[in-house]
Design a protein around this nucleic acid. Structure first.
Length: 505
RNA sequence: GGCCCGUUCGUCUAAGGGCUAGGACACCACCCUUUCACGGUGGUGAUACGGGUUCGAAUCCCGUACGGGCUACCA
C-alpha cells in the first residue's frame, strides 16, 4: 500500500519559532518534496489560554523567509481544511464518543481541585507524581465508577467533564520509528490522558490522531519530546482507524542549547539567537532576536539546520535546497540530540555569503545598511569585503569608510614613525594623483610605487600610513582597490587631512 | 522517583564485525598577504565504563554510569 506522501507541521501559535521547530519543518518539507508529496501546515490552537495574537502570522512569515512554503495551510488553502484546529472543534467530540461506546474511553468529572488532592494524597517517596491511570481511576469520579444513571444526569445537567482514554493495565504497545527502529512501552505505565477537555476542545493527543487521519497524513515527523506519548497515539489509531492506516512515525532528535533543551532564554544567555526571526511578545513587548536579524542568509540557516543531525554519508556540507531534497532520507537522521554550535553556524553563513550571487547580496546588504546615498558601486564594495564577513551585519562595519570619513582614525599606529620625508612623499603623491591619467587600482599602485622609488623610501613604510588615511584602521581589502572605489576627490581629501594633521604634531 | 530515548575528538558527525577510527567547526603552528581577514599546509584531540558473543567489536547482547526528554483539562 503506497499512498501519496503527505506530511504536516503542526505548530501551536504561542510564540517564536525556534531552531528545532524550523528543522522539523525542514525535514518534513524535504521528505515531501523528495517523494513528490504534499507539505501541510496545520495550526494547533486548541489551547485558547495560550493563544498569542500574531504568532500564527509570524510562523508563516518565518516559513516564507526560509523558503519552506506549504502546499496546504490556513494561508495556502487546500481541500482538507479547515487547517486551524479551533475551527474543527465539532469534529473531535464524535470520535471521543465513539471511543466511549467501544469502552476505550470514559467520562471523568473530577474537578481541578480533586485532581490536585489526588496527586497530593497518593504522592509517595517512590512515586512523587501519581498519574490518573489504571491503578487510580477506580478511585476517581468518572463513568467507570459512577452508575449509568448518575453519569447521565451529570451529563444532562451540563456538569463540566473531560473524556479520558482508557489505557489497559497490561500488555505492551510497540511501533516502528523511522529513526529509532522498534520502540515499545508497557501499557500499564501509560496514564489515562485527557482526550477532550471540559471546554469541548480536544487535547493534542486526540486532535493529532483525528486530523492526521482526516488529512490523510502518510508520515508523521515531530520532536523527540513526543516519544513518551506515542503509545497513546498508537492506541488511538488502533481503536479509531486501524493500525494499518497509521502514518509512519519519526521522532526527531532534539536540538540542545549549551545546557539541555533549547529555550528562548538561551539566546540572551549564550549570545546567539534561537528564533528564526525576531519575535516580539505582544503582551510584554519584549523582543527575542532571530537569525534573520542577526544577519543570517536563509540559505545558510536552512543548510546548517539540515546538517544538525543529518548528513548524506559523504563529506559534503554545503547544500542548496534542491540538493537537500535530492539527498535527504529520514533513515540517515542521527538518533542522538545535537548541541547547537553557534561558531559553526557562522561558518555556514560565511560560506553562503561567498556563494550567493553578488547582486543579490548587495541588495540584501543595502537593506541592512539602510539609507545610503550613491550606491552605484555597492556591488563592487560588497564583492571586495565579503571575504571577511560572517554575518550580513558585518558589512556595516566593513564598508562604513566607503560612505563616510572614518569614524575613528588610528593615528597612533603611524605617528611614532612619521617624519619629514613622509610628509614630502604624501604631498607629492597628492599632486601625482591629481593628474593621474586613469583612476584605477593598478595605476594608483604603479604611481605610488614609482614615487616611493624616486624618494628612496621603502613602500612598506608608506602602505600603512596610506591605509590609515583612507580606512582609519589596520583592516580592509587592498588599499589601492579602496582608493579606486573612493574616487580621486575623496582619496586626495583623506590623504590631505591626515598629512596636515601629522605634520603639525 | 517512574517511563522512554540517547552516548565516537571541546562541538557537529563518518565508519551499520575486519586497513594507522575519516571529515568539518573551534584551537595551535607555519605559508600566503607591505593591514585585517579569506585561503593553503600541518598539528593537538574521541569510540563513557565493565562484562560477554566472535578468529576479530566503535559496530551485536547484558549491566553500570552519565546526558536528555516526558511525567498538565500545554503543545
Amino acid at each position: 500500500m503506497s499512498k501519496k506522501v503527505r506530511v504536516r507541521f503542526a505548530p501551536s501559535p504561542t510564540g517564536g519559532l525556534h531552531l528545532g521547530g524550523v528543522r522539523t519543518v525542514l525535514y518534513n518539507y524535504l521528505f515531501a518534496k523528495k517523494h513528490g508529496g504534499d507539505f501541510i501546515v496545520r495550526v494547533e490552537d486548541t489551547d485558547q489560554s495560550r493563544y498569542v495574537p500574531g504568532a500564527e502570522e509570524y510562523i508563516f512569515d518565518c516559513l516564507r523567509w526560509c523558503g519552506l512554503e506549504p502546499d496546504e495551510s490556513v494561508q495556502h488553502g487546500g481541500s482538507f481544511g479547515p487547517y486551524r484546529q479551533s475551527e474543527r472543534k465539532p469534529i473531535y467530540r464524535t470520535y471521543a464518543e465513539k471511543l466511549i461506546e467501544q469502552g476505550d474511553a470514559y467520562y471523568a468529572f473530577d474537578t481541578p481541585g480533586e485532581l490536585e488532592s489526588m496527586r497530593e494524597n497518593y504522592k509517595t517517596e517512590q512515586n512523587p507524581s501519581p498519574q490518573y491511570d489504571h491503578t487510580l481511576r477506580l478511585k476517581m469520579r468518572n463513568s467507570l465508577t459512577l452508575s449509568k444513571e448518575e453519569v447521565d444526569s451529570l451529563l444532562t445537567d451540563g456538569t463540566p467533564h473531560v473524556i479520558r482514554i482508557n489505557m489497559p493495565g497490561t500488555g505492551t504497545i510497540a511501533f516502528n520509528d523511522m529513526i529509532r527502529g522498534e520502540v515499545s512501552f508497557d501499557m500499564s505505565t501509560v496514564d489515562d490522558k485527557v482526550l477532550l477537555k471540559a471546554d469541548g476542545m480536544p487535547t493534542y493527543h486526540l486532535a493529532v490522531v483525528v486530523d492526521d487521519h482526516l488529512m490523510q497524513i502518510s508520515h508523521a515527523f515531530r520532536g523527540e519530546e513526543w516519544l513518551p506519548s506515542a503509545p497513546v497515539h498508537v492506541r488511538l489509531w488502533e481503536k479509531l482507524f486501524g493500525r494499518d492506516a497509521m502514518p509512519q512515525w519519526a521522532h526527531l532528535p532534539l536540538i540542545l542549547g549549551p545546557s539541555g533543551k533549547l529555550s528562548k532564554r538561551d539566546g540572551a544567555k549564550y549570545g546567539f539567537p534561537v528564533f528564526a526571526m525576531n519575535w516580539t511578545d505582544p503582551k510584554t513587548g519584549e523582543t527575542v532576536e532571530g537569525f534573520r536579524e542577526r544577519g543570517f542568509l536563509p540559505e545558510a540557516f536552512i543548510n546548517l539546520l539540515a546538517m544538525l543531525g543529518w548528513n548524506d554519508g559523504t563529506e559534503k556540507e554545503i547544500f542548496y535546497m534542491e540538493e537537500l531534497i535530492e539527498a535527504f532520507s529520514m533513515e540517515r537522521v542521527h538518533s542522538a540530540g545535537a548541541k547547537f554550535d553557534y561558531e559553526k553556524a557562522k561558518w555556514f553563513n560565511h560560506a553562503w555569503i561567498q556563494r550567493v550571487p553578488v547582486e543579490g547580496l548587495a541588495m540584501r546588504v543595502e537593506k541592512s545598511l539602510g539609507g545610503l546615498e550613491g550606491l552605484g558601486s555597492l556591488e563592487k564594495i560588497v564583492g571586495l569585503v565579503k571575504d571577511r564577513c560572517h554575518l550580513l551585519t558585518d558589512f556595516a562595519e566593513q564598508t562604513s569608510y566607503f560612505f563616510e570619513y572614518p569614524k575613528t582614525v588610528d593615528v597612533a599606529a603611524i605617528q611614532p614613525k612619521w617624519n619629514e620625508a613622509k610628509t614630502d612623499f604624501f604631498r607629492t603623491l597628492m599632486q601625482r594623483y591629481e593628474t593621474l591619467a586613469e583612476w584605477t587600482a593598478i595605476e594608483l599602485e604603479t604611481s605610488f610605487k614609482s614615487l616611493a622609488d624616486e624618494k628612496a623610501i621603502k613602500p612598506g613604510e608608506l602602505m600603512l600610513p596610506l591605509r590609515i588615511m583612507l580606512v582609519g584602521g589596520k583592516f580592509g581589502p587592498g588599499v589601492f582597490d579602496i582608493a579606486d572605489i573612493l574616487g580621486k576627490e575623496e582619496t586626495i581629501r583623506r590623504i590631505e587631512v591626515l598629512t596636515a594633521q601629522l605634520t603639525n604634531n
